[in-house]
Design a protein around this nucleic acid. Structure first.
Lengths: 333, 333
DNA sequence: CCTTTGAATGCAATCGGTTACAGAACTACC
DNA sequence: GGTAGTTCTGTAACCGATTGCATTCAAAGG
């Protein structure tokens, strides 16, 4: 079932069929009817690969993320995909599994598949790989790297505002000993979050202690381990912030395992506001990172670059917001 | 940067380059070296679309699921993808968003992209669509539909064993008033689970009441609403089973909202055993559906069909298992 | 030394579309 | 009626690979 058969059946040339299918050039009503009926009766659908080969446009955007099992990302992917499909584009997802070296494979896949643009929402990019994409003319949108340039956009997330609100909130509850469990060192957004934390801490005039800065892995188990370490300190913190909600969940687990209660003994603050956080017992206080806005911005950036020939990158600014639920309470005693 | 340039640079024909890249036919060591060095110096990578067009194989499998935001699926997708990449295949994910009519779009995408096989892990398939795929020779593997045939495999999950264990467990704790909150009616696996529940109930000689069968949507909010309804009954159940863990989470929320406690007042049993369930407070008792095995079976089925020309479908049997945590306890009073 | 055999390589058709360009048909206007 | 302009349609050259078949060349066998 190819375009030639349709053309034969409708008594026209393949060019005309192509034009009817794509609506690129006006076709007389009579012929259009013939072609559509031929398409219907043969059950014809175009071969994407042939189409891409001929036109140079794949109608696919790539999305590179670190872990599809982290609920933060599926939400973005889902939203992005919905918008993309509405605009006649599709989505190809690639995972790096938190391993920077898998990035190369992902980028290669994107190039091989000739995507019309790539959204990169994962760890430090090797500049070489960025260059590779850029030189091939593939529009890029980053999450959180700050880089903007020709064909490179960026979604800047203002972590500082959310974190400052969070610290203010904790301070107002009487906390002064506040710890932080960060994400993997390789992840740029994790680094930004932890830097924003120390900065805000100093701004509030609070003591900063290296013991209070632990490293997690953005997964539940990492939070659990890190919290266990914090609890063993001579002077444990009275409040703990996590670099993402999964980490916070692990931390709560460790706190319970130690026979302590949240928030009576220790306050916990998450980061991201994934869906589940509102349904934990107690519901998690956290800093919301708006995922719909991220998805929309990412799509907008790529669409502008690939369809409207906008070649200068844009910076999208998105702010975070404190969500107070029930894991933060008055300092003990 | 196409194959012709590589051929020119290496002083050979494009056919030879193709053979070096694919390793389909032996090439002399000398020439192979020339070609490889040309590839490297030009930074050549093949165009997937041209390759697919020429060979008829896309090296992609499709995965159709109902909701990427349900943690059950990303786990499967992740595992499937890892195995696929190890075997030189890739993964194209499509969501139906629980809407049966979106299935058509998904199938169409799969056909257009010429996938080498499709794993369908979502609601009732329109037989017409199955036929469409089948006639085009696309191998299919279903989750939970029971259908097996030429080029159609199935992964059968033995829900009954897990559910029976669960009911036995609840009965041993003294429960007799056990309710069930099912998934969306359109989802075949949801129906199977709820049927297995009523069956097991009868087998244990327990009274079955229509009031105790509620419908959810496999998301948290649905569980919450359904549980609220159950709590308003004249004689509320003392134990509740959910068709999946997200539903159970919503149910626990409703129970807490009503000022009751789990498991002291009501026991809750989930279904799936998603990662988060072990980290809830209290950790959720549930029925584990082994996702790694599902992913492995699905891949195995498609790989056998597409690479080893195994045309008769296989039935893979996977059993479920009771996981007792802390949301199930002795009946009250 | 010539033929046979087999392995390595090249030639060119092919996959299924897109699209620049040419040409046809039709209208409009002088 | 002739010319210009517009609108639709067809022809055929691509896009970048794969692969059946023909060819070349060297080693083996007679």
């Amino acid at each position: 079932m190819n375009i030639r058969e349709v053309a034969k059946k409708a008594g026209v040339s393949t060019a005309t069929v192509s034009r009817v299918v794509n609506g690129t050039v006006p076709v007389s009503a009579q012929i259009e009817r013939q072609v559509r009926s031929a398409i219907k009766s043969l059950g014809y659908y175009p071969n994407t690969h042939a189409r891409t080969l001929g036109s140079g446009r794949s109608h696919m955007y790539g999305l590179i993320i670190s872990d599809i099992a982290n609920p933060f990302f599926p939400d973005i992917a889902k939203c992005f995909e919905r918008i993309a499909v509405e605009h006649g584009q599709e989505l190809l997802i690639a995972n790096t599994d938190y391993q920077p070296k898998r990035m190369q494979v992902c980028v290669r896949r994107m190039l091989e598949r000739k995507v019309d643009g790539v959204a990169i929402m994962t760890s430090e990019m090797d500049p070489k790989l960025v260059q590779l994409l850029n030189r091939r003319g593939v529009p890029i949108v980053f999450l959180d790297t700050g880089r903007v340039g020709p064909n490179i956009s960026n979604i800047f997330i203002d972590y500082v505002s959310g974190i400052e609100q969070a610290i203010e909130h904790l301070v107002s509850l009487g906390h002064t000993k506040i710890a932080f469990v960060s994400g993997p060192r390789t992840l740029s957004s994790a680094k930004i979050r932890s830097n924003a934390f120390t900065l805000s801490l100093k701004k509030k005039g609070l003591r900063y202690s290296a013991d209070y800065m632990q490293t997690g892995n953005h997964r539940i188990d990492g939070g659990q381990v890190a919290m266990a370490r914090l609890l063993k300190l001579r002077i444990p913190p009275t409040a703990v912030m996590a670099s993402n909600d999964l980490t916070a969940i692990g931390m709560m687990r460790a706190i319970h395992a130690a026979g302590l209660r949240v928030p009576e003994d220790i306050s916990v603050m998450g980061f991201d506001d994934i869906e589940i956080s509102n349904f934990l017992q107690p519901p998690l206080s956290t800093i919301r990172v708006p995922r719909v806005e991220i998805a929309v911005s990412a799509f907008t950036a790529l669409y502008a670059a690939s369809h409207k020939h906008v070649n200068n990158g844009t910076e999208y600014r998105i702010s975070t917001e404190l969500v107070i639920r029930q894991t933060t309470g008055l300092v003990k005693g």
